[in-house]
């Protein structure tokens, strides 16, 4: 893909928004690449972590927010621990994901990860503690992977690794308030925790994949 970096993108406020949002000074990065060298997920990413940092410096907001990289980051903090310029790269990845949710930019691939996060949070909001059956069921349903982990699940039940019923939460109201108020203060578009486009994308991708396999 060809990019044209112009005066406009460089002067774009993206870097400033990011620096204000997470307090990390991206300008200090001197592209040593140490963050990417230790990144366990780098082999799956479309841009390496150090490239993402460079792209931020150049104001390439759209490319960064729609990259797969930001969603593939496992928040393992290896990059942060090793950066010689003391840039918290993992925190920057966090900020980028939150920003992508806010601006509703959908990644160019691996769309099941943003979907999973939202399902997870919905699960917590409803039950207070993670209710695995609900989480797995909902995720499989909405991502189109209906039979994923069907071989593992019965063993998990037998070994009582996952329960069948959710926990009854006595803090339910307090919990709802926490979610509602955090969402409001953060302008997180919480009302659209599961936006249809994301679900549609996932489902259609899975079905197209299945049809191609059949051919």
């Amino acid at each position: 893909m060809k990019w044209f970096i112009s005066q406009e993108t460089i002067k774009a406020p993206f870097q400033k928004i990011l620096e204000k949002g997470c307090g990390e000074k991206v300008a200090r990065c001197y592209q040593c690449g140490k963050c990417s060298a230790g990144c366990p997920m780098a082999f799956q990413m479309d841009y390496l972590p150090n490239q993402i940092i460079r792209m931020i410096q150049l104001g390439m907001e759209k490319e960064v927010l729609s990259s797969k990289t930001i969603w593939l980051c496992a928040s393992c903090f290896t990059c942060t621990a090793r950066c010689p310029r003391e840039i918290n790269v993992a925190e920057i990845m966090d900020f980028l994901r939150r920003h992508a949710y806010r601006t509703r930019i959908i990644p160019s691939g691996d769309t099941e990860i943003p979907l999973f996060n939202k399902i997870f949070l919905r699960n917590i909001e409803l039950f207070g503690r993670l209710y695995e059956v609900g989480l797995i069921g909902m995720f499989n349903l909405l991502s189109g992977e209906f039979f994923k982990d069907f071989t593992v699940a019965p063993k998990m039940f037998l070994k009582q690794k996952i329960g069948i019923f959710p926990w009854r939460n006595k803090n339910a109201k307090a919990l709802k308030d926490i979610f509602r108020r955090s969402g409001g203060l953060e302008k997180a578009q919480r009302g659209r925790l599961l936006y249809p486009k994301l679900i549609f994308l996932n489902l259609s991708k899975k079905f197209i994949g299945k049809i191609e396999k059949l051919k």
Binding site: M93, R97, L121, I124
Partner: peptide, 15 residues
Amino acid sequence: ICCGATPAHITMQLL
């Protein structure tokens, strides 16, 4: 209650 784990901090910082 759940601490929010990874999905919370990549979705909403305050949460």
